[in-house]
């Protein structure tokens, strides 16, 4: 079985976020394999162990992103592809198109990704990719069963459970509850760091960054306002209600 995982390196959710000059400061911050992508890597390894074949992990990102690939290799993935050509960086539109050009002409049975990246949180890239490749996708899965070319997945549908069927090749996005990702072993880490990565450039992928430039631009990055202490209104109930409505209308401007 040809198994692929598209993954992303993200900001560690436990790190303190500092915004400086309109961007999130990256100095001295720990970056991790996107936690949802860990479920994808774990599921991919389990599929490989059950059906044979191999697991290839793919990412797009700067030099540091190779650490996320190496984490996946240390967990047990077989090969890693790092697209680090800056002309191919962009938004969900760009990334899904770059990935689509990578997958075109490749034989694949299943592509797994996280249900979303914990940094941008859009959850778009994977489903856009499935659309571009013209294959079925099942998002936010919590269970996956494959028999022959039949795929049955449970998906988390806003608290409800949907059982969805599809045929291979398929793209699935993984949700918490799917599995319990293994730790990379220390021997695995040592081996992963010795492994050469495949690093195709735009030309190798047959894609021109200019034609798939980002469709969206970030206008402003800011932290949520610090939570202020609550206020207790004085007076009788009628007066307090009136004051509350007034504040909601004129101060918070939510009514």
């Amino acid at each position: 079985m040809n198994i692929f995982v598209a993954l992303k390196q993200t900001f560690d959710t436990e790190e303190k976020i500092v915004v400086e000059n309109g961007a999130v400061k990256e100095d001295g911050v720990r970056f991790v394999l996107n936690p949802y992508d860990e479920y994808a890597v774990e599921e991919a390894i389990k599929l490989r162990d059950e059906f044979g074949g191999q697991v290839t992990v793919v990412t797009i990102g700067p030099d540091r992103a190779q650490e996320a690939l190496r984490t996946a290799l240390a967990m047990g993935a077989d090969d890693a592809v790092h697209i680090s050509d800056e002309s191919l960086f962009g938004d969900e539109f760009t990334v899904s198109n770059v990935l689509a050009s990578y997958f075109k002409g490749k034989e694949f049975d299943i592509i797994l990704t996280g249900n979303q990246a914990v940094d941008s949180g859009s959850g778009q890239t994977a489903v856009r990719l499935a659309e571009l490749l013209n294959i079925a996708h099942i998002s936010t899965i919590t269970k996956l069963e494959i028999s022959g070319t039949d795929v049955v997945a449970h998906r988390d549908a806003e608290g409800d459970l949907e059982v969805v069927g599809a045929k291979l090749p398929v793209l699935v996005t993984c949700q918490q509850g799917l599995n319990d990702p293994r730790y990379p072993s220390l021997i695995g880490i040592r081996k992963a760091n010795k492994k050469p990565l495949d690093t195709p450039a735009a030309g190798d992928l047959g894609v021109d960054g200019a034609s798939i430039g980002a469709k969206a631009t970030v206008q402003e990055t800011f932290l949520p306002a610090a939570k202020a202490a609550g206020r207790i209104l004085d007076g009788d109930n009628a007066g307090r209600v009136q004051e509350l409505v007034n504040l909601l209308q004129n101060e918070a401007k939510v009514l």
Binding site: R30, V32, E67, R70, T71, A74, Y183, P184, L186, I189, R190, A192, N193
Partner: peptide, 10 residues
């Protein structure tokens, strides 16, 4: 090194 960093993190 990358080895050392990844081992520490793991």
């Amino acid at each position: 090194t990358q080895d050392q960093m990844m081992i520490k993190n793991m």
